[in-house]
């Protein structure tokens, strides 16, 4: 067992435990903080996959923007759900069975996959600049890239319109 495997096991265990605590923690602010730990674990796994750029993007977008936004909304809406109330609904047994069933079938598929043991050789030429050029290349991914930017603008405007204070008489 190499050092990399040990590191993967440690980070993977932390990520998995943090994500289990996200869905089971009775206090939502704690769940949000566990979510940050789980997202950071995924960022470390991105580094293990030798993609430092996407790890940084993961930290900047997921931890910085999304997780903080979620925690702020938890704090804004905290008054309605008391922590003594059950945080899990009546059909959680069914939900757990569905999740376990999905995990079992995914495991069965993954284990019979002819998966490579070691990663392919990383071409030193295919670095960040290749990715950046491909994103704005007409023959590359400019259409999904622009659609994503339009989607983000639409989501921003939509979020402002939806979340503004209701007008009198609404």
């Amino acid at each position: 067992m190499t050092a990399e495997q040990l590191l993967f096991l440690a980070v993977g265990a932390v990520t998995l435990i943090a994500s289990i605590l996200v869905v089971t923690s009775p206090r939502l602010v704690h769940a949000g903080l566990w979510l940050i730990l789980a997202l950071a674990g995924v960022a470390v796994l991105f580094v293990l996959l030798e993609n430092g750029f996407l790890a940084v993007v993961q930290v900047a977008i997921y931890i910085d923007a999304i997780a903080i936004l979620i925690i702020i909304v938890v704090m804004l809406t905290r008054a309605v759900m008391r922590e003594t109330d059950p945080q899990i609904n009546r059909t959680w047994v069914l939900a757990g069975m569905a999740a376990l069933l999905l995990f079992g079938s995914l495991l069965a598929i993954v284990l019979q996959l002819p998966a490579p043991i070691r990663p392919a050789l990383l071409d030193p030429e295919s670095g960040l600049d290749v990715l950046g050029k491909a994103l704005v290349d007409v023959n590359g991914f400019i259409l999904p890239f622009e659609i994503a930017s339009v989607l983000l603008v639409a989501a921003l405007i939509g979020a402002i319109v939806v979340a503004r204070a209701p007008m009198r008489g609404d």
């Binding site: 996200v22 869905v23 759900m81 109330d85 059950p86 945080q87 899990i88 609904n89 059909t91 959680w92 069914l94 939900a95 757990g96 569905a98 999740a99 999905l102």
Partner: peptide, 8 residues
Amino acid sequence: LFGVLARR
């Protein structure tokens, strides 16, 4: 998925 299905 469990969180989506089970949380209130």
